[in-house]
Simulated scan of single mutants.
Amino acid sequence: MDGDRRPGASVQGLPAAGHHCTSASIGGAAPGLILYSAALDLSSTIGVLMLMGIVCKNSILLVDYAIEARNAGMDRRSALLKAGTTRALPSS
């Protein structure tokens, strides 16, 4: 970590990303379960929990990528657009 930055400054937007990802993942899983008339049993509950973890991790990485781009000198709009397009690409 650089000496000129405050410790923990790069995680300032992460709590908001963590709170919104749980409702977003449940909001995506519930219609799928209803659409296919699937029961909410142990395997689907594990799947929903895994989806929540993936969505939360992606949102945290997206916010962190935007913060790092801002720290590199980009303006807010450019940093958000770059973070969104970069994180939307599949990893290879």
Rank of each mutant, 00 (worst) to 15 (best):
S92T: 06
S37L: 04
Q12W: 15
R77L: 05
A16I: 12
A17C: 11
L80K: 06
S10Y: 15
H20K: 12
M52N: 11
G3F: 12
L40M: 04
M52G: 10
G28Q: 09
S92M: 05
I67R: 15
G18F: 01
P90N: 05
G13L: 04
A72R: 13
L49P: 01
L49D: 10
Y65S: 07
L81Q: 11
A39I: 10
A72F: 09
K82W: 15
A9Y: 07
L51C: 01
G18M: 11
A38N: 04
S25R: 05
V11M: 09
G28V: 05
V48G: 01
A69V: 03
D2P: 07
A17I: 09
G18R: 10
L81H: 14
A30N: 07
C21P: 00
A38H: 00
D2A: 15
L62K: 01
L33D: 09
M74A: 06
A72Y: 14
Y65L: 11
T22F: 08
R87I: 15
G32C: 02
T45A: 09
P7F: 10
H19D: 14
M50R: 10
A38Q: 06
L42Q: 05
D41R: 06
R70I: 07
S91P: 00
A17T: 06
L62V: 06
G53D: 01
L14F: 05
L89N: 08
I26Y: 01
I54M: 05
A69D: 13
A83W: 03
C21I: 05
Y36S: 07
R5G: 08
K57N: 08
D41G: 12
A17N: 09
A79S: 12
N58D: 01
A24D: 01
R6Q: 11
S25K: 01
A69R: 06
A30D: 06
G73V: 00
D75Q: 02
I54P: 00
D2S: 14
M74V: 03
G53Y: 03
I26F: 03
A29K: 00
A29S: 02
A88S: 12
L40D: 03
